[in-house]
Design a protein around this nucleic acid. Structure first.
Lengths: 322, 322
DNA sequence: GTCGACGATACTTCTGAGATATGTCCGAGA
DNA sequence: TCTCGGACATATCTCAGAAGTATCGTCGAC
């Protein structure tokens, strides 16, 4: 059975007349008679009563027609839905991100994206960079924001773009001697109780600090470890010590704290956006568009890697990543 | 777009491989490639990603496929539903009946029918014969049970079959002088307070009584009138008078009452089943089958009028009705 | 590099949808 | 009763397009 049979049956039911229904369908009457006859033979039941007064559906015909209407509606909706999904207006985007990204680029990006694409279901998963990289490669995420160039098995399938530069800053209680100082020299940190994020399975602040303070610096090995940036700031506010973290931290001010630069200025791993190089999903493209629009420097980086392609284009295999 | 495109897309999604999907569909690979390409052109979006690892739906493809599945399910269900409706297993049957039919043939008939055809929706409407005839002609009922041959405009389009013979019986209180008597002579009713059903717009008990007692019998004109048989019996039980009604009344015994035959035996209008002669709806056929099976004499009458036709046959225009 | 797998393309074949002409049935009207 | 005309079915032809065959282009694997 073909959709044609359904359309013809519906037209016949609507016009109650073979000739007029055929006219409305743009065909002659005999083909319509034949198609309806074929349909009735396939279904195994007479679907229309041909009377002098007109052509009316039988009980079987009425049952058939109601299903036929729904079927044709589904077919029409299939095209519409597919087109919408292709334009990135619907669909799903699974985003993995490190917690600190919530401080700075994500609020703007997510707000803008969900305003522009209200029908794309956003699935947000906070996770470490290493995990998000693996999840991207495994197809469990569509896009990830992490620290530094992703490495590990399959990372060469990913495109990665830095979307934020960071350097080391310190946070202390407002009663701390450093409070009020615009900056603090790194040498002075050697003699301070420090508060840092754990650095075992992530490229993070500690990575930079090791080169800065020396691999086996007692200040480092004795440092208080807190996973969350807000915890670091909180501990510093309590006077536990000097909190160290990325400059993104500055967007989370808190009463009773003082932030100061660390000299010499110490760059930290970039905040990096990654996605599968082969992935041209419209929702992802829409997301990248938002990022492009949100921040011109990031946009330039994306353009550089993706070329000025429209949201549909295929091609571009010269990714500078891996 | 045709159902073929949906089937092909689903097969391709299932096998993730053009060659194997084509094999499963019983066609060669090139036609499948072409049909999918045509479909993608019509939808205006790429539906499948062709990769070395296999063929996978894009976001648009996934949206399309879910609609396509539902559409094909509806199409399959259309055939099934139509076939069921044609066999009279589903559908609707609108039955008009006079209240007294609830006493005798309807309980058996309705019980059996709803057991045999649980998915046919029965719509029951109690109404006078004259109304049910008009409703049948107007297509507002499918079948009716009334008293006597239906008359009126369009009644010649109906087939009518007597399904029960009745004669006049009397009901009295068990304290009434007639109590205990097997029968009562009609002459003695002239001097009794009578209780009868109204007879203005219906062929009913009164019709028979008029010829029996005389057109202007004072017993008749002074009779108590009650529309409902149960009311007649109730009034008789209270000693209001001698209730008169069809022998069907005997199936509704009540404490404190006595039923007796009226002599000479006085036939009343038959209980008659009617339906549109042209109506071959499966639910109606199923209903007629039940009546045929339920009562052999009625079955014979139906066979006589309809011929021994199966539930599907057309034909037979020699109705003895009108 | 060659080979093989896979999908796309080119071209042919043939099914079947649709067109035209005609038949059959039946009710209306003379 | 006969004819006429409207309406659906049937017969036959035509042609669009679905499917088949052969081949090409591409891309990994070896």
């Amino acid at each position: 059975m073909e959709a044609r049979h359904l359309r013809y049956a519906l037209a016949l039911a609507e016009h109650a007349h073979f000739g007029r229904a055929a006219g409305a369908l743009g065909i002659a009457q005999p083909p319509l008679s034949k198609q309806i006859a074929d349909l009735e033979r396939e279904v195994g039941a007479r679907l229309f009563d041909r009377t002098r007064q007109g052509v009316f559906p039988t009980a079987a015909g009425a049952a058939f027609l109601s299903r036929a209407r729904r079927a044709l509606d589904e077919i029409a909706a299939a095209s519409v839905d597919a087109a919408r999904a292709a334009r990135g207006e619907t669909g799903r985007l699974r985003l993995g991100f490190i917690a600190s990204a919530l401080l700075e680029p994500l609020p703007d990006i997510l707000g803008r994206f969900s305003r522009e694409r209200p029908d794309v279901r956003l699935e947000l998963h906070e996770m470490a960079t290493r995990r998000s990289t693996a999840a991207l490669v495994a197809g469990e995420l569509d896009v990830a924001i992490g620290l530094g160039r992703p490495g590990g098995l399959g990372a060469e399938q990913l495109v990665s773009v830095p979307i934020g530069h960071d350097h080391l800053v310190a946070v202390v209680s407002s009663t701390h001697p450093y409070a009020g100082q615009p900056s603090v020299d790194v040498d002075r940190l050697q003699r301070q109780p420090l508060i840092v994020a754990p650095g075992e399975d992530e490229p993070t602040v500690v990575t930079g600090l090791r080169t800065l303070l020396g691999k086996d610096s007692p200040a480092l090995s004795g440092a208080t470890v807190a996973r969350d940036i807000h915890t670091i700031i909180g501990l510093a506010a309590c006077g536990v010590g000097v909190g160290l973290g990325p400059s993104r931290m500055l967007t989370a001010p808190r009463r009773g704290t003082w932030f100061c630069e660390v000299t010499p200025r110490t760059p930290l791993p970039d905040l990096v956006l990654s996605f599968r190089a082969r992935d041209r999903s419209p929702a992802l493209n829409a997301f990248l568009d938002v990022i492009r629009k949100n921040c011109s420097e990031v946009g330039a980086a994306l353009d550089h890697r993706l070329g000025p392609l429209g949201p549909q284009e295929e091609g571009d295999r010269d990714s500078t990543s891996t």
